[in-house]
C-alpha cells in the first residue's frame, strides 16, 4: 500500500481544492447574477420583506387562503414531512380531524370537494403551493369574511394559477403567499 499512499494523499488534496474549494466558489460567482443574487428570492409587501418566494408560510387567519398542513410548522430553519405510513391509525385520526375542522370553517362545502393536499402534510413542511382546487374550495369562506363578491376572489385565484411547464409538463399550482398578497391589495 505504501507505493500508493503518497500519490493518493497528494491527489486527495488537489481534488479537495478543485471540488470543494474552486467549484462552489465558481457557482457562487455565477449565482450573483441570479434574481436573488444567490441568497434566495424574497417577497416584499407594503415595503417589508414578508417571506421567500419559494417557501410556504402559515396563515391561521381565516380571511386568508390557508397553506397545507406542515410537520415543521412552516419554520424553514428546518424541514421535513410527517413520515406517517398510509395505514397508521393515529395518522388517519389526524386526517379525519383535519377534514372535520375544514368542514366546520367552510360551511356549505362537502367532503368530496376537499382536495387531498389540504388534509395531508407536505414533504418539506414548506410547500408554497396549493392545487387550483385547493385554493378555489376556500373562496366562498374568504369572500364571505371579507365581504367581496365570490366571483372576484375566484377570478383572483384563476389569475394566479401557474399552468404546467411550457403548457405541457407537470401539474398546475397556485402560490399561496402571492395569492394572499394580491388578496390584501383588492380594494
Amino acid at each position: 500500500m505504501r507505493r500508493y499512499f503518497l500519490p493518493a494523499l497528494k491527489l486527495t488534496i488537489v481534488l479537495i481544492l478543485l471540488t470543494a474549494g474552486l467549484y462552489p466558489l465558481l457557482i457562487a460567482g455565477i449565482g450573483k447574477l441570479t434574481p436573488g443574487k444567490g441568497d434566495g428570492v424574497t417577497v416584499t409587501h407594503h415595503g417589508r420583506v414578508v417571506g421567500y418566494a419559494n417557501i410556504g408560510q402559515k396563515f391561521t387567519d381565516e380571511k386568508y387562503f390557508q397553506s397545507r398542513p406542515s410537520a415543521v410548522d412552516y419554520n424553514a430553519g428546518g424541514s421535513g414531512g410527517s413520515n406517517k405510513g398510509p395505514s397508521n391509525p393515529d395518522y388517519l385520526k389526524i386526517v379525519q380531524a383535519r377534514i372535520d375542522t375544514f368542514l366546520v370553517h367552510n360551511p356549505g362545502i362537502r367532503k368530496e370537494q376537499i382536495p387531498a393536499e389540504l388534509v395531508t402534510a407536505s414533504g418539506s413542511g414548506l410547500d408554497p403551493d396549493l392545487s387550483p382546487a385547493g385554493a378555489l374550495v376556500q373562496v366562498p369562506r374568504i369572500a364571505r369574511l371579507r365581504g367581496i363578491p365570490e366571483e372576484k376572489v375566484q377570478q383572483l385565484v384563476q389569475d394566479h394559477v401557474k399552468g404546467p411547464l411550457l403548457g405541457m409538463f407537470g401539474p398546475s399550482k397556485v402560490n399561496v403567499l402571492q395569492l394572499n398578497i394580491a388578496l390584501d391589495n383588492i380594494k
Partner: peptide, 11 residues
Amino acid sequence: ATGAMEGKEVR
C-alpha cells in the same frame, strides 16, 4: 384527484 399527497409537494 391529485393522488396520495402525504409527504408530497403540489408542484
